[in-house]
């Protein structure tokens, strides 16, 4: 028996909106510690890892570990039927082939339940080693989204370079080139507008902008994004999900020419 009640149901709506274009089908893993997901895109270039810790739910009952295979587009369709301020409850029986999403309005005058069929999904779980990163950039998520969107109008790839001067995003295409440099800015008064760069060593890596733009669908979840880089490792683009967890996108670099 699984019953997860999330007062901030809007968070789950935003999580699904940020996943559904990257991954078609995925297993949500439910255990005593939380509700999580790890899935790759179909070309095995990008991976998403989601964790919503059990403490973040108003009510969290998970009698035994369960894996719920869901089509993320269909799940997103159902969650779109919830209002942003609805309380969302996810329910499933151990042997059931369906999951129920219950939406309650904040003053309890409207209650809806949507039942969705579950799927059997063969998922390949990846072991992600703990890595020491050469550079970690924390910046406003809206700024990062804007940069990825702007650069993708000019080129297909972005070179992200971190030096002690700042973080530089560069692209080149048929019509020309573009470079955007963001300098460190502690923004004491408005921490959500800060750009903080922690650098052990300068690092420069090339990534496909198509995936970066897909990751920025998570922008409504958090004011800040963290971009962790090391030479010859996938970049990690992380958005916090309120106080309860995170959504992390991993993207393998392009091969330098």
């Amino acid at each position: 028996m699984l019953e997860l009640r999330l007062v901030q149901g809007g968070l789950l709506k935003k999580v699904l909106e940020s996943l559904k274009d990257l991954v078609n089908d995925a297993n949500f893993d439910c255990s005593a510690s939380g509700f999580s997901l790890q899935a790759m895109d179909s070309s095995h270039v990008a991976l998403v890892a989601l964790l919503l810790r059990s403490e973040g739910f108003e009510h969290y009952r998970c009698d035994r570990n369960l894996s719920l295979g869901m089509n993320l587009n269909n799940m997103a369709k159902m969650l779109k039927c919830a209002a942003n301020d609805d309380i969302v409850t996810i329910k499933a029986d151990d042997a059931s082939d369906s999951v129920t999403f219950m939406f309650e309005s904040p003053n309890q005058d409207k209650i809806a339940d949507f039942e969705m069929k579950l799927m059997d999904i063969d998922s390949e779980h990846l072991g992600i080693p703990e890595a020491e990163f050469q550079a970690i950039v924390r910046m406003p998520s809206a700024e990062f989204a804007r940069i990825c969107k702007d650069l993708s109008t000019i080129g297909d790839t972005v070179v992200i370079s971190v030096t002690k001067e700042g973080v530089k995003f560069s692209t080149r295409g048929d019509i020309g080139t573009a470079n955007i440099v963001c300098r460190q800015n502690p923004s004491i008064d408005k921490p959500e507008e800060a750009t903080i760069i922690e650098m052990e060593e300068p690092v420069s890596l090339t990534f496909a902008l198509r995936y970066m733009n897909s990751f920025t669908k998570a922008t409504p979840l958090a004011n800040q994004v963290t971009i962790s880089l090391s030479a010859d490792l996938p970049v990690v683009v992380e958005y916090r999900v309120a106080e309860m967890g995170y959504i992390r996108f991993y993207l393998a670099p392009k091969i330098e020419e």
């Binding site: 070309s43 095995h44 390949e124 990846l126 080693p129 790839t157 996938p234 393998a252 091969i255």
Partner: peptide
């Protein structure tokens, strides 16, 4: 231009 690494180069499939 340039090729694309896949995640399997960096992470172990378990």
């Amino acid at each position: 231009g340039g090729g694309q690494y896949s995640l399997g180069k960096f992470f172990l499939f378990g």
